[in-house]
Design a protein around this nucleic acid. Structure first.
Lengths: 210, 210
DNA sequence: TAGATTGTTAATCGATTAACAATC
DNA sequence: TAGATTGTTAATCGATTAACAATC
């Protein structure tokens, strides 16, 4: 399998969602142009991207909506259940716990951790909050592949280390810090404040300071 | 001013944070190598990026931490107060309302909107929730430059249209949908579920299906 | 068949990295 | 001065876009 470029990988879920929409309105075939139009992605790009995962379009006809959706679902492993555990139970965690996208993408949030004695032992959305000290053992025993970090920056690296100790495979990091991790651990940095900074810059640009 | 590449723009806030950390430990000078090391960004890249905003490094010495931080703060307009309003008061909104990064980056969340009669008129964190129908007028009167969309996908385009009607300049969109907007409106798409899909893919990859 | 649309090769574009003279 | 580090030019790398023969 040839290496798939990151930009392509980021577009695949978008295609998938577009296909789900097409299915909802009963569309059976879709061309690369149609698939890209709402996403503002040129048809050439769509075809190139889809070329990485399968060759199943039909010249003159387009792609089979259902089959392509199924292929993408399989490629992205969305139907394959994956357990996740979260550390740092604050407001953001609370939002994620209730995030409907989770199940939709095959993720099951099964454990919560925090270091605040007042929180440990209490429940959120049916999940008990465990002491952070128990993290490595519980990750290892339950074979949790995905860790979510929603702690303050100061604690993030420590928590990440504990997750690594517990055998984590991928980390979704919401702390605005670059984690030092073994090569083998995959990390998605979800840096909200970096996006805020860009928003700040562009907004100031479009309304130049007098 | 020459056009600044998007990848560079995304790195600037990271440098800024790194500089704040350096200031905290009393560091006065920093080299491009030191600045990039924790972020895993090569020194050449750092120098190139900084070249877009100012030439103030001293050969043989490095960059003045305080001055560079101030320059970045000014360039990203972080100290310039910008009002923001949010539509769709759910769990995610609740997390954002309490997000400490906001003030840090010069954003002030001043209004909330929703279309749920049960929510309209109630308060969250000292902010009254207004009817979505009032959005365009209130954006216009209060000159709100930044709109935040945390509604379900189905409502997002409508809400965006109302914001545009009210004269919004930038939109921070958390709904997993590509908004159709005038060229002049800048948008940051914060698509959590797309990241989830990537996480799903990589996790499945590192633990191949038997 | 004629029209539409694919998959893919080649051309273009833009960002990253290497190299190094200039400078402190 | 010698060592360190900058700013910038040139080389490399990788992704996007254009073009088009093959196919339905």
């Amino acid at each position: 399998m040839s290496h798939i470029p990151t930009p392509t990988l980021k577009r695949l879920p978008m295609y998938y969602r577009e296909l789900l929409r097409a299915m909802q309105v009963g569309k059976q075939k879709i061309s690369s142009t149609e698939l890209g139009i709402g996403l503002e992605i040129p048809s050439t790009q769509v075809r190139k991207d889809l070329g990485y995962i399968a060759d199943q379009g039909r010249p003159g006809v387009g792609y089979d909506v259902k089959r392509l959706a199924a292929t993408l679902e399989h490629f992205l492993a969305l139907a394959q259940p994956k357990n996740a555990a979260l550390a740092g139970v604050g407001n953001l965690a609370n939002a994620l716990i209730h995030f409907p996208g989770f199940q939709q993408y095959g993720l099951y949030l099964t454990m919560l951790f925090d270091n605040d004695p007042a929180k440990i032992g209490t429940e959120v959305a049916g999940l008990t909050i465990h002491a952070i000290t128990q993290l490595p053992a519980m990750f290892a025993v339950n074979q949790i592949p995905i860790g979510i970090i929603t702690t303050p920056s100061e604690a993030a690296q420590q928590v990440a280390d504990l997750m690594v100790e517990g055998g984590v495979q991928s980390i979704w990091n919401f702390a605005p810090i670059t984690l030092k991790l073994p090569e083998s651990v995959f990390v998605v940095n979800q840096d909200l404040s970096a996006e805020l900074a860009i928003l700040s810059y562009r907004t100031a640009q479009s309304r130049p300071v007098k």
